[in-house]
Design a protein around this nucleic acid. Sequence first.
DNA 1: GCGAGGATTAACT
DNA 2: GTTAATCCTCGCT
Length: 192
Amino acid sequence: MLDLNFYARDSVTVAEELIGCLLVRRQIDPEKPEIIVMLTETEAYRGAIDPASHAYRGKTARNAIMFGEAGRLYVYFSYGMHSCMNIVTSIPGTAEAVLLRGAVPLKGVDSIRSNRQGIADKDLLNGPGKLTKGLPIGLDMNGYNLLAEHSEWIVLAKERTLPIRRTGRIGISRAQELPWRFVADIPEYRAK
DNA sequence: GCGAGGATTAACT
DNA sequence: GTTAATCCTCGCT
């Protein structure tokens, strides 16, 4: 299981190393089946030194979680429709985070399908909004501590080393040129 | 397969 | 009032 030492580094390093790691919902509630997905796409955001970060202009009610401890989820609502999930990294005050943009299901696919009715398997989790809808992770999960004892959601270390493609970030209007997006580069899991 | 455009709301200015 | 770290459908090829 990834620990505080893993997350307490700069978000670019963490974003790259998260590719191939497993995001897991342990079966604590018998109503909710176990879910395991492997992360295939991430992006780093770097607080005050990153014009595209929600934290660039300082702390607000929305982004407050990013200014705290690493290993927490920062979940925000976007385009009036989607929520997106980040993992806070680095040390408190720097407001760095990694946006989780895509994954592939390894276990609990039926549960994910039921959250994504009518969607082809290959498109279940290949986008930040799709990922949060499929798992599901909502705004109510903002601030969730992945490192807490008996946490329902945890992240496990890399199960498999994947070839990684490094690119500029997408879907943003500022600082697109910064090469802080990481995508698992294998045909069977390629996310666009 | 591809590109254009609409959907819909929280947070910020 | 405006913007936004997006997704999906539709129309055309």
